[in-house]
Design a protein around this nucleic acid. Structure first.
Lengths: 207, 207, 207, 207
DNA sequence: CAGTAAGCGAGACGGTACGTCCGGTCTTCGC
DNA sequence: GCGAAGACCGGACGTACCGTCTCGCTTACTG
């Protein structure tokens, strides 16, 4: 799978590298360097050269294994949850309370610069690069969304949500306003705001 | 006062240029070039040098009048509606129908590359640049949102919307899902989708 | 003339730079930096980047005005005699003495690292690059050889040299052994050796 | 002794490889590849990587057995005459005729790109690298010059050459002008030119 | 209504980063 | 245990743009 995307993304690379001989040490160093530099410098000022220098790695090693700077950032974020088992949302039986908790946690993440900076960087790259957007959906958004939808299905079985509700749409109504405020800095991100989004969503999709 | 500006003359960006002597010809050429180049090359490959070359303008002329590439893009979009009087939404008395029309029009805009490409470029720049985000809110988003809220207030008076509804939140629920799908290319943008957003919003904020 | 050779040497440069606006300051800085760096680092370790850095000049400024590193070296050597009027050899009337003086001076030059290092660098580049060889002949070797031949012609008129002697050949017999010893380090360069070359040359071309 | 070499094993270039186990196959492949690539690409574009790839050999195999690229070139030229017994010049008793034949043969060699390109490459490397120059003198120039001097000694015995002539100097006067013309491309290499060099040399060193 | 100062097109400049290439070293396999 | 294969760190290459800076030229205000 990886190799295919390389072939599509790479411009002139014809002979694909042998992944079995890849240096795990270098890989970790690059991802760590990327994660550190983004909040330090701001994404726009993070360069491949800076990542390579900080990681103590040749530039070629980055170009060999990642198709773009955005892909490095995506990997650096994915690496944080490496080794964890699948995501799972709280399920106390009380949908409203569970969603408020999750939404408030999201608000808190956006307030923490260590999360916020790489996330904003990634979001910008995704908006600009369809290939990266596909990688993002497949490897990060997809699994997380699936976990969220699992919780919603449980709520449907419990009669707390309209049984014919389009769960993708439910997620969008919950998250898109929050993420848009964050991305555009168009308003404050507070717990009250999180709660309001949960309330209106439940109203809109009440059985 | 005179002497101070004399003394500072030559220091970068302290003595701002005399707008009265600005060449309208050059301004239009730059905005047109920017608008044309973004869909042609893709935003990432549009450079100040390319805009200047296409416009037949010196680079300094761009640096003199715009603070950033994003500002040029913003202006190039604003210039499209230059001369028009204030925005105004349809008001047939039937809120659902009016909103569906507006949302479907937005969907159509996103499908047209001539609108889509500069809009995406602008959105990316806004996400990366807080200063530009402020300009955007003040000069583009603000007036448009005010017009939309005016229509919603009319609906509140007509008893078609909860009188205590937070109109900013209503707008976010309507638009953020649509714009996020577009920005992330995370799903199809259809008229049905636009209608679904209108329906759930009206449900959530029904009186 | 210069522009033509640029066009031939440059790979992708189509729009030739405007020589009238060239910065004399930068030109001098580059030539001085090159002259200093060659003996310091040895020619093989002198890079365009190092010259640019030492000169406090952008790399592009070098690439804009010189087709190759060798051309910079050639210019840096030519710049030494810039402003001087044409070369002229001593003419005491005694050919043997005059030639010995000139040959011994050449031997001394080869012993001085400040001359030797750039000269060796240039000689190597000339051997590898026919374009540069042409520049060298035209701008450096040509005028110098002409001055030497002028002295030989004077000797012919004085009956000290065979009147039908091929003067280019005379110069080669004088200088080529010396320069080859130097280039290949195949033997000692002494005043006696210089004298021996003069003696045998005069024997070979005696009237 | 054993322990020392054990301890140093792995330290770069201290423990030299066991020449007995050297692969003759690889050695030949490298030398052939080098000889082929120099005329094909021009010396400046011949890289160790290209030689290794063409030879079907790992880069390390080259670095293990040769100290520099120039040494590979030198070996590739030496390999041509491998197996031949010592060089020997024609001796018809007529020095002038014999020298003309040899000089004309040299002119012909310089005209053949298959000889010319590696020879030029080697000459350049020798000029830049004193270590290689020493190897060159010992393994290539030395034996050849000795053979030439043997012929000259025979001529001295036959009274065709001044008995006290410095034979190294004689060789230089014969060859240096020719080789310098070739290296600098400063004039045509013809049979007449070869003959002229022989004539003037015999005049200069006539008994 | 001439003189002058600004904006202008043009583009050279000092820089930074790009993405590629290669040098020389090190590691992993297979023979 | 050598050798092929090739990943690795390092660093220079030549190019593309950045944002600043002259340079003449044109154009509009000012004295």
């Amino acid at each position: 799978m990886r190799l295919v995307s390389f072939r599509l993304a790479g411009v002139s690379r014809t002979a694909k590298p042998n992944a079995a001989r890849r240096s795990e040490r270098s890989r970790q160093a690059v991802l760590t360097a990327a994660r550190e530099l983004v909040p330090e410098l701001g994404y726009a000022r993070v360069t491949i050269e800076a990542i390579a220098a900080r990681a103590g790695v040749g530039k070629q090693t980055i170009y060999r294994w990642w198709p773009s700077k955005g892909a490095v950032i995506l990997d650096s974020i994915l690496a944080l949850s490496e080794g964890e088992q699948g995501v799972r949302l709280p399920d106390t039986g009380e949908l409203a309370a569970d969603l408020r908790a999750v939404m408030r946690a999201t608000v808190a993440e956006f307030a923490d610069p260590v999360f916020e900076a790489p996330l904003r960087a990634l979001t910008i790259e995704i908006a600009a690069d369809p290939d990266l957007a596909a990688m993002y959906r497949e490897r990060l958004a997809g699994p997380v969304d699936e976990a969220k939808k699992e919780r919603l299905r449980s709520a449907q079985r419990a009669g707390q949500l309209r049984p014919d509700a389009d769960l993708d749409l439910v997620l969008e109504v919950l998250y898109a306003p929050l993420q848009q405020r964050w991305l555009r800095r168009s308003g404050p991100l507070t717990d009250d705001y999180a709660d309001a989004l949960v309330d209106l969503t439940l109203r809109a999709f009440a059985p």
